[in-house]
């Protein structure tokens, strides 16, 4: 009998849990606590029991009744507290969101990292003077880079900068040494357009000038910068390169971001990805910017933000970036 009472209580409580309407709760209450309820029958049959059993069952039945009454009134209170509104609460949600350009997002991320490393963000003009784009960077008059077919020359004797490196000279002339600057910006090349080439793309320039700056420091800064950017331990290596404004000049490779250096199709099984050009700032460039190359040394690097954005977001056609097509740009919601 004891078990029966327990079962009854559990059954009532279980049933109560499933109910959410007042009427159902009241019906349920009548079923378990009403005059014809099983519990009431048990109470009625109490007097027929032996004295010993009566002593046990009496309090148990009363306790059970009390508990159930409390549970029902609690449930009723809960239901009465719910304000009922009459509408379809299952409609879908559509959120209209704006977007920032992938270049903006990547540039922000990279300049934030570089700021943490102590770089100041500077900028310079897109329409630039030949002096800053070439002469001051030790690029002589007959250098192929100065050909019409690579550079957009303008009717006013200026040009559209072909790289962000003019910012090196502008920053050195403005602030002098020591100096740690980075300069994100848009650059222009007179090129035929295809999936990998656009006339207009973005770079970030970086430069450190101080006493005693060495190639070892360059390697440190580049490895730290890339590891933070790609959020993994990246290895870097230098190869001989050639740029008129650095000496020695390097091509910098980073360990393949896909395979980590084991070799895969992305890195053509070499384990390395060509990342950027860099080098020790050429003494002529320092001199031209009013810095004594016997006292100061420094390094500079420049890499394509457009390429990083394409790698990061797996954009296969560069032309998407300047298309202004919101169908593709909309995906880049604010982080």
């Amino acid at each position: 009998m004891k078990e029966k009472v327990f079962d009854l209580k559990n059954k009532a409580l279980e049933e109560l849990k499933t109910l959410s309407k007042e009427a159902d709760v009241l019906n349920c209450k009548a079923k378990y606590l009403g005059k014809k309820s099983e519990l009431n029958e048990f109470l009625g049959s109490l007097k027929e029991l032996a004295v010993d059993e009566k002593k046990i069952m009496g309090p148990l039945l009363n306790q059970t009744k009390k508990e159930l009454e409390e549970a029902f009134s609690h449930k009723l209170e809960e239901i009465n507290n719910q304000i009922s509104y009459d509408f379809d609460e299952t409609l879908p949600i559509y959120v209209e969101t704006g977007s920032m350009h992938p270049i903006t997002l990547v540039t922000k991320e990279m300049t934030d990292i570089m700021k943490k490393m102590g770089f100041t963000v500077v900028s310079g003009p897109e329409m630039e003077e030949e002096y800053y784009n070439f002469e001051a960077l030790n690029i002589p008059k007959d250098h192929p880079a100065r050909d019409m077919q690579d550079t957009y020359y303008l009717s006013n004797g200026k040009l559209l900068r072909t790289h962000t490196s003019p910012n090196q000279v502008r920053a050195m002339q403005k602030y002098g040494a020591p100096l740690k600057v980075c300069a994100p910006g848009r650059v222009f090349r007179n090129e035929d357009m295809d999936a990998n080439h656009d006339t207009t793309f973005f770079q970030i320039e970086g430069m450190v000038i101080d006493k005693g700056i060495s190639i070892s420091n360059l390697i440190y800064v580049m490895r730290s910068l890339l590891s933070e950017t790609f959020k993994k331990d990246v290895k870097v290596r230098l190869r001989p390169g050639f740029f008129p404004f650095t000496e020695p000049s390097f091509e910098l490779d980073c360990s393949c971001l896909i395979c980590g250096g084991k070799g895969c199709p992305t890195c053509k099984n070499s384990g390395w990805l060509e990342f950027c050009g860099c080098g020790m700032v050429h003494p002529n460039v320092l001199r031209e910017s009013g810095i004594d190359p016997e006292e100061y040394t420094g390094f500079a690097f420049g890499f394509g933000v457009t390429r990083i954005a394409m790698m990061k977001y797996k954009i296969s056609d560069i032309r998407v970036l300047n298309s202004g097509d919101v169908r593709s740009l909309q995906e880049f919601e604010i982080e």
Binding site: G98, M100, H101, T104, T199, T200, G324
Partner: peptide, 10 residues
């Protein structure tokens, strides 16, 4: 304002 940033040519 849910606007979309674009880049266009100079």
């Amino acid at each position: 304002y849910s606007l979309n940033e674009v880049h266009s040519y100079l």
